[in-house]
Computed example of a mutant assay.
Amino acid sequence: MNFQDVLDKVCNGVSDNKTSQKLGISRISFSRYRNGRQVPNDELLDKMIEMSGLSPQQVYLAAYAEKVHNPKVAEAFRHLAA
């Protein structure tokens, strides 16, 4: 699972704009997450866990895989999050 999959679960068929409002963040911030330019902080990841129904392990590992600049480590995180 990658972080885009997490965001898709958080949205659950609702627009990114409405999802960003539910999360209490700007549409621009959500767009940065969607485009892989930024990763949310832990507090926001916790909100995403609640909204998505995913396990904390899946969400945190997918998010941290985005933060890691080592492709092998990132792939290992994604594999663990699956």
Results as ranks from 00 to 15, higher is better:
Gly36His: 12
Met48Ala: 04
Glu50Trp: 05
Gln38Lys: 09
Phe30His: 01
Ala76Met: 15
Gly36Ser: 14
Lys47Thr: 07
Glu66Pro: 04
Gln57Gly: 02
Arg78Ile: 15
Val68Gly: 04
Tyr64Pro: 09
Ala63Phe: 11
Val6Ser: 00
Leu7Ile: 03
Asn41Glu: 13
Val6Ala: 01
Ser26Gly: 04
Gly53Asp: 04
Cys11Gly: 00
Tyr64Val: 13
Lys67Glu: 14
Leu45Tyr: 05
Asn12Arg: 06
Met51Ser: 02
His69Val: 11
Val68Met: 14
Val73Ile: 15
Pro71Thr: 11
Asp5Leu: 07
His79Pro: 04
Pro56Ser: 08
Glu66Tyr: 07
Asp16Glu: 14
Lys72Ile: 15
Asn12Ile: 04
Gln4Ile: 15
Arg37Gly: 11
Ala74Ile: 12
Leu7Gln: 00
Leu44Lys: 15
Cys11Met: 05
Tyr33Gln: 01
Lys9Thr: 01
Ile25Asn: 00
Ser55Thr: 07
Asp42Trp: 08
Val6Leu: 00
Asp16Val: 11
Leu44Ser: 10
Lys22Val: 03
Ala74Thr: 12
Ser52Asp: 05
Ile28Met: 02
Thr19His: 03
Ala63Arg: 07
Met48Gln: 05
Ser31Lys: 08
Val14Cys: 03
Gly53Lys: 06
Asn41Gly: 13
Ala62Gln: 06
Ala81Asp: 07
Ser31Asn: 11
Gln57His: 07
Val73Lys: 13
Lys72Gly: 08
Pro71Lys: 14
Glu75Gln: 14
Val6Asp: 00
Ser20Ile: 05
Glu75Asp: 13
Ile49Cys: 03
Met1Asp: 00
Ile28Arg: 02
Lys67Phe: 11
Ser29Arg: 10
Cys11Ile: 00
Gly24Met: 00
Leu80Cys: 13
Ile28Trp: 00
Gln57Leu: 06
Gln58Asp: 03
Pro71Ser: 14
Pro40Asp: 06
Ala62Ser: 15
Ile28Leu: 03
Tyr60Cys: 04
Ala65Phe: 12
Val14Thr: 05
Gly53Trp: 08
Phe3His: 02
Phe3Ile: 06
Val68Leu: 14
Gln4Phe: 08
Lys67Pro: 09
Asp16Leu: 10
Lys9Glu: 04
Gln58Gly: 04
Gln21Ser: 12
Lys72Ser: 12
Asp42Gly: 12
